[in-house]
Every structure is written in structure tokens, then in C-alpha cells.
């Protein structure tokens, strides 16, 4: 990796002001993406600001019908949380399906959504459950957060502090994993709550997206058969060694149907 200044932030304020003062800083959360990218010499930040000591960014609270998860909470902590399991089992299942034990013990929810990998699992949870992203300066709605492949609505230096997930009436996440990386080739989060039905797809496109036609059909009748005949267009979907756009489009329907069935 290229040389950089390493700083260990003592507070959110310290992290953000350090970032503001540096030329081109990266926040280090779990490091599951940043460290490999640095080792591959694909990034050359002037400063790496480590958030490891920020206890204020850790932890899970259930309040006002929502589960608020601190940005530095690991996937393993979410997967293992009795509170999450009780309130939104689909979210615990999703966290459990990320990567492998090493990744789940290091990777964090804030790091994952700020990175906005098009194949990451958490974006499906954020959009599929209609979450709110809290930053050091504002809140951002789920539908406004992910803007493009590896791009979010975060301003330079803006730091995710927590994500709050409203508790749905029912929800489930179904994932077809990339056999090598265990990222999602296609992952679908389906939820139903007082605000309506959400169907969010990760892995298939350049960023997480919702399938309006499926949401409408499920709003009318929340049964697996409602989405079985609805397919998304393969046009513009991702293509790589592991799956063609056509196969991904097919999997969106299969995973959506299975998610509805699992949501019960």
C-alpha cells in the first residue's frame, strides 16, 4: 500500500474535523474493503482515520418502533443480537449471510453502506426496510442514500453514525451468493409494514433498486404467487464471470418469490 497518515479518532467530532483538515482522508471502520483496496494500491488516501475507538457508534437500541444500529456495529453483533432477532429477524438473517466469520467479526454496517458495493447485502436491508441513515450532520432517507455504484449521498467527510430500521409487520431476505466472494449475485429484501410493501434488490444492478411492479402486486395480495410472474428487464443488469444479466433477472423473480414465502 501507499504511505498515509494513520489517525485514531477519539470522537465523532474529532474524526470529522480530522477529515476536514486533511487533503483526502478515508475513514476506517472494519476495513473489509478499504484494507484490500489499499493493499492492491487502488487507493491512495492522504489520511486513514480509524473509528475503532468510537464507542458512541456501537450498539443496538430498539425504540419508537425502530431498531437503531450504531455504524460501528459488526455484522456478527447484528446477527447475534436477540433484540434484532426479535424485532426484525430478516435483518439478523441478512447479517448472518454476509461473507464468512472473519468478515462478520470485522465488518460494520456503517462501513458497508458508506462503501455502497453494488453486491453488498446491507443496501438491500436499508432500502428494503425503508431505513433512515443518520450521519454526523443530518438524516438521509433510504431511497435517497444509494446514488450509484459505490456512490452515496454522503458529502465528503460526512460520517454515518447509525442506521435505524423501522420494524416491519413481516420481512425476509433471500440471497443467491457469489460462490467465491459470498457477496450477493442477487439478494432480495421484501417487507410489509404500515407504510406499504418494499422489494429491494441488491447484486443485480449498479446499485440497489426497488421493483415497483412487485411492490404493487404484493400490496394487493402478499403471497408468493403475486410476484412469480413478474420479471425485471435484463437490460443494464450486471454481467461478470458468475452470472449474465439474463440469469440475474431470472434470479430476481425467484429470490423475490422465495422471500415472500419466507416472510409468511
Amino acid at each position: 500500500m501507499y504511505e498515509f497518515n494513520y489517525r485514531r479518532a477519539s470522537s465523532v467530532f474529532d474524526a470529522v474535523s480530522s477529515s476536514d483538515q486533511s487533503g483526502d482522508a478515508s475513514y476506517l471502520a472494519g476495513g473489509m474493503t478499504l484494507i484490500p483496496v489499499l493493499k492492491f494500491r487502488l487507493a491512495a488516501p492522504s489520511d486513514v482515520i480509524d473509528l475503532a475507538d468510537l464507542g458512541e457508534l456501537k450498539g443496538i437500541r430498539t425504540e419508537n418502533g425502530a431498531v437503531a444500529i450504531g455504524a460501528m456495529t459488526t455484522h456478527a453483533e447484528v446477527a447475534g443480537s436477540a433484540e434484532v432477532r426479535q424485532a426484525i429477524p430478516a435483518l439478523a438473517d441478512l447479517a448472518e449471510s454476509i461473507g464468512d466469520p472473519q468478515v462478520r467479526n470485522r465488518g460494520t454496517i456503517g462501513g458497508s453502506i458508506a462503501n455502497a458495493d453494488p453486491a453488498a447485502d446491507y443496501p438491500a436491508a436499508v432500502v428494503g426496510l425503508g431505513a433512515t441513515v443518520h450521519t454526523n450532520s443530518r438524516t438521509i432517507g433510504a431511497d435517497d442514500f444509494f446514488t450509484a455504484m459505490f456512490e452515496t449521498a454522503l458529502e465528503p467527510g460526512e460520517l454515518v453514525t447509525a442506521v435505524s430500521f423501522p420494524v416491519p409487520d413481516r420481512a425476509a431476505y433471500m440471497k443467491f451468493p457469489n460462490p467465491a466472494s459470498r457477496y450477493a449475485i442477487v439478494g432480495v429484501m421484501v417487507s410489509q409494514s404500515g407504510d406499504g410493501v418494499r422489494v429491494a434488490v441488491t447484486g443485480a444492478g449498479g446499485r440497489v433498486f426497488r421493483v415497483a411492479e412487485m411492490e404493487q402486486a404484493l400490496a394487493a395480495n402478499f403471497v408468493p404467487e403475486a410476484v412469480a410472474g413478474i420479471s425485471v428487464s435484463a437490460e443494464g443488469l450486471n454481467e461478470d464471470l458468475h452470472a449474465s444479466p439474463e440469469y440475474r433477472a431470472h434470479l430476481v423473480t425467484v429470490m423475490a418469490r422465495r422471500a415472500v414465502a419466507a416472510a409468511g
Binding site: N178, P179, A180, S181, Y183, D240, L241, H242
Partner: peptide, 24 residues
């Protein structure tokens, strides 16, 4: 079932050059 050492047919670039793409 899993492993595929693949080169791009035109450029000859190795497409499966890391363990996130090459599945052991």
C-alpha cells in the same frame, strides 16, 4: 463445479485473478 481460470478472449487479461472471483 466452482473453479474457472478465465482470460478475456480479446485482451488476454486474466478475469479470475483473485479469490473473490476464483472460487476454491
Amino acid at each position: 463445479m466452482l473453479e474457472n481460470c478465465a482470460y478475456d478472449e480479446d485482451s488476454g487479461q486474466l478475469l479470475s485473478g483473485s479469490l473473490t472471483d476464483y472460487c476454491i
